[in-house]
């Protein structure tokens, strides 16, 4: 499902119900494919669907296209980027990105174009401004706060221990001895 065009409206998966004539449809589909493959020229060769590149292979260009496309959401898939999706629309979008790059458009311009057409929804990574700063900032704030908290707690515990009793608790000493034993074999044997 992830890779498929699950979101095309009116997707027939649910609508067609229970297939009494499943065999028939299978046979039909089978015939279609088979006729096309065995008897070349019968099936129309014209195809609107995407063909990949025609020009010479340019690794730097492709890398750049891939980088931009991987930040765009494939709108007919679930959680896949335009770069990764095998769907036709994603292929067309990759081609469009390539064209725009070749026209000299920057990454930001291309993103802005897609946002103007599909809304912010199309960006897989929320732009870092306004409300979105929360999603970018909070994780680091939370971790720093957590680390600070650990420091405070650890310091309080250290102080408490120093106040309490400098002498070594016998139970704890036994534990330490056992730890050492666990790590380095029998002690003093």
């Amino acid at each position: 499902m992830r890779s498929q065009q699950a979101a095309w409206a009116g997707s027939p998966t649910g609508a067609s119900g229970y297939r009494g004539g499943r065999r028939a449809i299978l046979a039909l589909a089978w015939a279609l494919v088979w006729i096309g493959l065995v008897i070349p020229g019968v099936a129309p060769a014209a195809s609107g669907s995407a063909k990949a590149d025609a020009g010479p292979w340019n690794p730097e260009l492709e890398e750049h296209v891939r980088e931009i496309a991987s930040g765009l959401r494939c709108v007919v898939c679930q959680n896949l980027s335009v770069a990764d999706s095998p769907s036709d629309l994603a292929k067309e979008m990759r081609n469009l990105v390539r064209e725009l790059v070749q026209q000299g458009k920057s990454r930001e311009e291309i993103q802005a174009y897609f946002v103007s057409r599909y809304g912010e929804f199309v960006l897989l990574s929320p732009p870092k401004r306004g409300f979105n700063l929360l999603v970018w900032g909070l994780p680091f704030v939370a971790i720093l706060a957590g680390a600070w908290g650990v420091y405070l707690v650890a310091r309080r515990w250290t102080l408490r221990r120093e106040e309490a009793e400098p002498a070594v608790d016998p139970v704890y000493a036994e534990r330490v001895r056992r730890d050492l034993q666990e790590r380095e074999g029998p002690v003093g044997s």
């Binding site: 095309w8 979008m93 599909y118």
Partner: peptide, 19 residues
């Protein structure tokens, strides 16, 4: 008419048919 390369569709922000 057809939409080769889905150019018009993308320009209209189409993500499914029909729209």
């Amino acid at each position: 008419g057809p939409d080769p390369g889905s150019k018009i569709s993308i320009d209209y922000g189409v993500y499914g048919v029909p729209e």
